[in-house]
Nucleic acid binder design. Structure first.
Length: 273
DNA sequence: AACACCGTCAACCGCAGGTTA
DNA sequence: GTAACCTGCGGTTGACGGTGT
């Protein structure tokens, strides 16, 4: 039954990391790569639990971390994403290369909250502090997230091939068809939800594979740039894979090439505040 | 100089969902 | 099928440094 305990807590160090511990961890990960946090401390000769090692690496030692103050542009991205996602720091961090969820969370609590309050905006609801109902049309457009309408459908599905960063990413644009019927002009739902940021869901194969190959059995999924575990193509359930559905049974998608609009619908619907 | 207060942020804790024996 | 473990996430804590009195 089960497995052996991950670490003996009574024999592990706690608190601030020493320079020697950092060096050991860096050296080990450079040699063996990330992952297998359970066995890492022992293998690296560290008296820490795997969880502590992972946190230290991800939040502080990783070489691709950006140091220094947040820019004004990053501030605005964080505010916009927070208005959409709430306290989903890992998703927000995925949109800010070199920043960690912990860093953004701290920055939000120490700086941005105050910044929004000074603008007269409630940092939790992103609505004006003095009135919950009398927001202007423009303000509402930028912050209010509505339930996904039942008329939502995939407007376009596109594979990016030229952009070195987004290479081999499949992007979906989702639209509310009722808007088209009523106003005679198609409206992209992501733009309706938040005009300032790109709210596209993307799916792409692992970076190491040069080309998108539909015959490959496993694909990695990304939402806002964050990877989710690879799943077999034959059993793809988009909502399940991106963790919006608990079970595969509720999904109607049968393969990656047959992603159904209702899954996209649920994805957008799940963003409702 | 000494103390109190405040802001910052690294690190810990507990939980949820997924995985494995 | 089930229990126990693993991983990642968000909330919270506490050490530390800066500033005001």
């Amino acid at each position: 039954m089960g497995r052996s305990p991950c670490c003996e807590k009574e024999h592990t160090n706690k608190g601030a990391w020493t320079k020697e511990e950092d060096e050991r961890l860096i050296k080990y990960i450079k040699q063996h790569g990330e992952g297998c946090w359970r066995s890492l401390p022992k293998a690296a000769g560290l008296l820490r639990c795997g969880k502590s090692c992972r946190l230290r690496w991800i939040n502080y030692l990783r070489p691709d971390l950006k140091r220094g103050n947040f820019t004004e542009e990053e501030d605005e991205i964080i505010i916009n994403l927070h208005s959409l996602l709430g306290n989903k720091w890992s998703l927000i961090a995925a949109r800010l290369p070199g920043r960690t969820d912990n860093e953004i969370k701290n920055y939000w609590n120490t700086h941005i909250k105050r910044k929004l309050l000074s603008r007269g905006i409630d940092p939790q609801t992103h609505r004006p502090l003095n009135s919950s109902a009398s927001t202007s049309v423009n303000q509402q457009k930028s912050v209010a997230i509505r339930p996904c309408p039942p008329t939502t459908q995939i407007l376009a599905m596109q594979t990016v091939r030229n952009d070195p960063v987004m290479k081999n990413t499949i992007s979906f644009k989702v639209a509310d068809s009722s808007v088209e019927e009523n106003s005679n002009s198609s409206s992209v739902l992501s733009e309706e939800l938040t005009p300032e940021i790109n709210l596209e869901l993307s799916i792409r194969p692992p970076q190491s594979h040069g080309q998108l190959k539909l015959e490959k059995q496993e694909f990695k999924y990304q939402i806002f740039g964050q990877s989710v575990p690879p799943v077999a193509r034959t059993s793809v359930c988009l909502c399940h894979s991106i963790r919006f559905e608990k079970g595969r049974s509720s999904c109607k998608c049968v393969s990656m090439t047959n992603v159904k609009a209702d899954c996209m619908q649920r994805f957008y619907g799940s963003l409702t505040l």
